[in-house]
Nucleic acid binder design. Sequence first.
RNA 1: GGUGCGGUGGCGAAGAGGCUAACGCUGCGGACUGCAAAUCCGCCAUCCGUCGGUUCAAAUCCGACCCGCACCUCCA
Length: 483
Amino acid sequence: MIKTEVKIFNTASGKKEVFIPLENDQVGMYVCGPTTYNYIHLGNARPLVVFDTVRRYLEYLGYEVTYIQNFTDVDDKIINKANEEGIKPAELASRYIDEYFRDADALQVKRATVHPRVSEHMEGIIKFIKGLLEKGYAYEMEGDVLFGVTRFPEYGKLSKRSIDDLQAGARVEVDEKKEHPADFVLWKKAKPHEPQWPSPWGLGRPGWHIECSVMSHEYLGPSFDIHAGGYDLVFPHHENEIAQSEALHGVPMAKYWMHNGFITVNEEKMSKSLGNFFLVRDILKKFPADVIRFYLLATHYRSPLDFDDEKLGVAQKGLARLQTAYRLMEEAMNGTLAEHSSAAIRLGAQGFRQGLQALQGKFIEAMNDDLNTALAIAVLFDIAREINTFVAAGVTEQDQKALLEGKRIFSELAGVLGLQLDKKGCDNENGVLVDALMNLIITIRQNARTKKDFQTADEIREKLRQSGIILEDTPQGVRWKPI
RNA sequence: GGUGCGGUGGCGAAGAGGCUAACGCUGCGGACUGCAAAUCCGCCAUCCGUCGGUUCAAAUCCGACCCGCACCUCCA
């Protein structure tokens, strides 16, 4: 367990607070997951990556994290789309759950401890609603069950809205029969040809907010540490969850509420309703998944983040710089580069190690400050420079231990961000073949260079570049890598 | 109308009372190189939306104003 003080910005208080879990080294986290009627877009991906990073960091520090992320698989949009396609809603939902995993896995998002689905928690939902009715927080209306916001005095505390404001600005369809326009549905009366479940109030299905209250309670208890999601969930989704859960259980639902900012396109929120969204899998056709992840983490999670290809291109270059440093260090360790003592003044191995350890401290400090991944990445760049400088000056046998230590720190910290630094080269069988061919080509070119036939040498290099292979001539020999 | 967030170099982006305002990209100069690439070194904001105020000291606190964004309705 690394002893250190993590601070988290808590939407509930509007301030950064020291993170102290309810139960010493155990952390319970609930992240609102997608409604599964489409492939996920980049805006959906941000919370996945951000809160996965929160999890990774807490685990790195030694906490044991129970991470719950739901799938909303019962919903109007699912029903509509399924009808369009002429298949069952459940079938459509489960298809997009599979597709979700494909994208999330690519982005190195760790699987949750449990991924509960609404459709599998009907019993719990019904029981929960029953409890709310019994305690007098909910009321029945023509087969629907509604939560009465005026019956819960603290309603509005998360989003800092008063019930009166809600009434004043209400663009909500006013249903005269509701006690209050902001009352929201817990249980919806069934319509024909829709998924439906039996309940004490007749056939129907759950409203949107109730699922998270029920499932978080089932897996994490009435009170847990972190509840997270996109900023647009603060109201009404999370506000309503709080109302339901705290009304029923009488204890604070979550200790810390974390919300990520939006991805924008031309400064406008990326959203399904605006239609300006980019699917993760389409972006993956142009950029590797780790570049997307790097891009998402290079800005603080609460700030808006504008998207375009150019910005991903910058991220790609940045990540490549880190990977290059890692590669140079590995080569120095493997002795791929001949030992070379340079005239340059160089850091001793001792200084190198101490420098990296100090930077590791800075990394932790950055992450402690409300998950400042932008700063943490800056530290990674500092580490890269240390490594490059150290390695470029020439490495001897005595430096190997320091290099090993450096490699450990570097990859460990990158790993906290879910970034992999070692290039997964060619797959093994082909790799041997490719290596052999590359060695042959390089030898031929070297012969040309020895004869000062630079025209031939340059032609080979240019042709390889066009095929996606970069050659680098270094004092220690020729190196190649895919673009 | 209500609520909240933000405006930092050519671009992106940290910093939130006091070290020369991080880091990355771009550009420029240098080292290295046959030339490149990669790498290293150096340079590029007298200034942090505007105007006032508080303070010994402000990009960082307060006030006003301008601009942008978001939420108040499904949305990550």
